[in-house]
């Protein structure tokens, strides 16, 4: 998320009920929140529900905002909750806490060792490449995906991600490692087929 504009938003004005200032808050953060919803739920309608519920919730509770985190982290926290609630409604088996205590490295062990990192960006982000990337993100379990999206896509720090999701920093780090390794495996399988044979060792 772009942090710069958040500095310009006046918390005092928001708390005082300044509608114009709230509109500015909406314009500053609606794109990243919509994007998060889109990637958590996988379709525009649900992403729009997450977006609307997040700001309705923020509007109702802005007066209780204590400033312990940044406004951005606070909004992400609401958005993550909204996204996970909607997910649970649709898929009751989803459990954000499911990773607790499962910290062995078994499922992060790499199996793909083809170096595609030097492939040109045009190739990596061709229409098909982008689809593969999106599909790989969609395949992450929800409990890893939300951590990965907040930290690596939206650029929150480990601490902010932990605050937004009510997790410990250690837990965020563990999930992040798993998410990154799982994505890397998916993408390696995809891109290795696009590498010239000579690059394989």
């Amino acid at each position: 998320m772009d942090r710069q504009p958040s500095n310009e938003i006046s918390l005092e004005a928001l708390i005082a009920g300044d509608r114009a200032e709230f509109a500015r808050l909406v314009d500053t953060y609606s794109s990243p929140i919509y994007r998060l919803g889109l990637r958590m739920l996988g379709n525009p309608q649900d992403a729009e529900d997450v977006l609307q519920n997040t700001f309705l919730n923020a509007l109702t509770h802005i007066q209780n905002f204590e400033g312990r985190s940044s406004l951005a982290t606070w909004l992400y926290r609401i958005a993550a909750n909204e996204a996970l609630m909607l997910l649970r409604k649709k898929k009751p088996e989803v459990n954000i806490e499911e990773m607790e205590g499962e910290e062995d490295a078994e499922d992060v062990r790499p199996t793909q060792f083809v170096d595609w990192s030097a492939l040109p960006e045009e190739e990596l982000l061709s229409g098909e490449g982008k689809k593969a990337l999106d599909a790989a993100v969609q395949q992450l379990p929800e409990s890893l995906r939300i951590v990965f999206l907040l930290r690596d896509v939206e650029g929150l720090s480990i601490k902010e991600t932990a605050d937004a999701l009510n997790l410990t920093e250690t837990n965020v780090k563990t999930r992040l490692l798993r998410a990154r390794m799982a994505l890397r495996e998916h993408l390696s399988a995809y891109y290795s087929e696009r590498l010239p044979a000579r690059s394989e060792k």
């Binding site: 960006e121 993408l187 390696s188």
Partner: peptide, 15 residues
């Protein structure tokens, strides 16, 4: 290789 491709994976989602 794991390091390079992991870094690249993160770069890609941030473009």
């Amino acid at each position: 290789i794991v390091l390079n491709t992991t870094k690249r994976t993160i770069d890609l989602v941030q473009t």
